[in-house]
Design a protein around this nucleic acid. Structure first.
Length: 572
DNA sequence: GCCGTTTTCGGCCCGACTGTTTTCAGTCG
């Protein structure tokens, strides 16, 4: 069982307990444990898992035993017991907007609803409207909820969310200063819905502009302070209008995460204060903070916490000790170490990529076209690679104060050898090694393959190490710890690939790699000049992994970068 | 179920919106 699978079981138990009307705080402990296990950086199946588990926050005696049992057997008596009473399909019913645990329980017990299909039938027959505290409108809402669920996009990529958010903000009146909060602001790799906040301005009606946008498919709510719409593609967008003195508290609150907010509000409670989206209030209900986030955190004795860290993963305690790391920022990054040109499968010339990168404020780039084993991408063989190196050297003669490094995204072959001869690799400034085939290989095979590449004296960087494509392809069975260990030993960097579909290493892996002492590079893998803008997603992912600039090699000037890769004496 | 400069028992974040109700329960974030 992977940690993710264990977390899913915990969530499932939480759902079923909730439907049974179990104590909400008990339910919350299962949910919280699921969160914690989902991002936990050691394998629960490991031998030492038992002691490590007990050290995790929110996991006590009974949960740790349950988790170990699930890890070993895939299930546990509690889950089996619940599954004997509650049909699996009822858990899907919980995902229908407007149906919560209480409603699901009533639907099951009184109308024998067991899945979405039987729920729909119960609605069409009018039986749902006859339930206590339900009516025609509730029934209609549930039907709409089912339709919404069926055409909803689910979670979308960060880049897709960015495009939607930008379009919405464009259509809101500028004086209301709209900003995006939520998981988008935290830089999560996928976004469920888009939360936008706007300042209340006399005589301005952003709600009307919002619900009237041409891309709105359905208005879910339309209130004075909050409206919700579904835009084309099935994505939900929320707008909230906030009085200016509350803007900081609202931004803090709506940025989340929910677990982070609970942690912060508990702290407020312990200080005799009350924190809501309207501000921080004392016992006499006087507002003592709220206009800015820094003010709110500050009044709670906390340093301002970057949104990317707000996952209840220890950041509140660190903020209280004034010991948060200084995270890498977009403007720290001076170069981009993976991109493609027309030589292989890119859309633009080397010069065009260089000029676009320079316009974005970078000092250097590496051109890393594919190598010959990736025939579908028009990969370069040794001859073409040597000619490309000549072109890059010539271009550098013309560019003042900007450097194009000659690189290559070299294929790691099945046995861990590279597909370009060593004497040609020696001519390159940057060798990036990647796997694009055999991604379903067993753990030992893929690990041996990648470790061997990392040991190669010319290899500087292992690119998109996990091989996952978000929503399309799982990560390979690679033993990441083994690869990280090798990278630390050989002065090889691990890439944080900024492609919105990759974000690989992911946030948890970044934190793991840094804890083990590795160095990173953040690269765009751009196949066109426009995609150089992806850098921001990679930076956010690194920040979510608590990355500091000193551990991100491409924050260094080009000379410092080269120095790192030659420290083991074997690299170019 | 977890946890402890309020506590080893009794707490556990907080408010808007909706629908079905004459005061509130359920859902959502």
């Amino acid at each position: 069982m992977t940690n993710r699978e264990i977390a899913d079981v915990l969530d499932q138990i939480g759902d079923m307990l909730e439907i049974q009307g179990e104590n909400v705080f008990k339910v919350r402990s299962y949910r919280r444990a699921a969160e914690t296990i989902g991002r936990c950086r050691f394998a629960i199946t490991g031998a030492t898992a038992s002691e490590q588990l007990r050290e995790l926050p929110g996991i006590g005696e009974s949960l740790s035993q349950l988790i170990l049992e699930v890890a070993a057997t895939g299930t546990c008596p509690l889950r089996e017991q619940l599954l004997a009473v509650i049909p699996q399909g009822l858990l899907d019913v919980l995902r229908v907007p407007g149906v919560g645990p209480k409603t699901a329980g009533a639907l099951f017990h009184q109308l024998h609803v067991t899945d979405i299909r039987s729920l729909e039938e119960a609605c069409r027959s009018g039986a749902v409207a006859a339930l206590p505290r339900m009516g025609a409108k509730s029934q209609e809402r549930i039907l709409e909820g089912i339709a919404l669920l069926q055409r909803s996009a689910g979670r979308i990529l960060l880049s897709e969310a960015a495009a939607i958010a930008a379009r919405v903000i464009e259509q809101l009146p500028p004086p209301c200063e709209p900003v995006v909060a939520g998981s988008f602001r935290r830089g999560r790799e996928t976004v469920g819905d888009i939360d936008i906040l706007a300042v209340e301005v006399q005589g301005l009606d952003p709600m009307a502009a919002f619900t009237g946008m041409p891309e709105v498919e359905q208005v879910l709510l339309h209130g004075d302070t909050r409206s919700s719409v579904v835009v084309k593609g099935g994505v939900q967008v929320d707008l909230r209008v906030i009085p200016r003195p509350s803007m900081g508290a609202a931004l803090q609150y709506f940025t989340g995460s929910q677990q982070h907010n609970i942690r912060v509000r508990e702290r407020a409670g312990a200080m005799g204060l009350r924190l809501s989206e309207y501000g921080l209030f004392d016992a006499d209900d006087r507002q003592i903070a709220g206009a800015s986030e820094a003010e709110v955190y500050g009044a709670l004795g906390l340093d301002w916490i970057p949104p990317e860290l707000r996952e209840d993963a220890g950041e509140v305690a660190r903020a209280a000790e004034h010991a948060l790391p200084r995270l890498v920022e977009l403007h720290d990054v001076r170069g981009d170490l993976q991109m493609h040109s027309q030589w292989s499968d890119g859309a633009h010339t080397i010069r065009q990529m260089a000029e676009a990168a320079r316009a974005r404020g970078l000092d250097y780039i590496a051109i890393t076209d594919h190598s010959k084993a990736l025939g579908v991408a028009n990969g370069l063989d040794e001859d073409r690679l040597l000619r490309q190196i000549d072109e890059i050297r010539a271009l550098n003669q013309e560019l003042e104060g900007f450097t194009v490094l000659a690189g290559c995204e070299v294929e790691i072959l099945a046995d861990g050898r590279l597909d370009i001869a060593d004497e040609v690799l020696a001519e390159l400034d940057i060798v990036l090694a990647c796997v694009h085939s055999g991604l379903n290989a067993p753990s030992e095979a893929i690990t041996r393959r990648m470790v061997r590449a990392a040991e190669h004296p010319h290899v500087c960087i292992i690119g998109h190490p996990s091989g996952r494509l978000i929503g399309q392809r799982d990560r390979t069975a690679l033993d990441l710890d083994a690869l990280i260990r090798t990278c630390v030993d050989t002065h090889t960097a691990l890439e944080v690939n900024s492609g919105p579909q990759r974000l690989d290493l992911c946030d948890h892996d970044v934190r793991r790699a840094l804890e083990m002492g590795a160095h990173l590079v953040i690269s765009t893998d751009a196949h066109s000049a426009e995609s150089l803008s992806w850098l921001t997603y990679g930076v956010q992912t690194a920040r979510r992994g608590w990355a500091t600039p000193d551990r991100v090699l491409n924050t260094r000037p080009v000379a410092g970068l080269r120095a790192f890769f030659t420290m083991d004496g074997g690299n170019p």
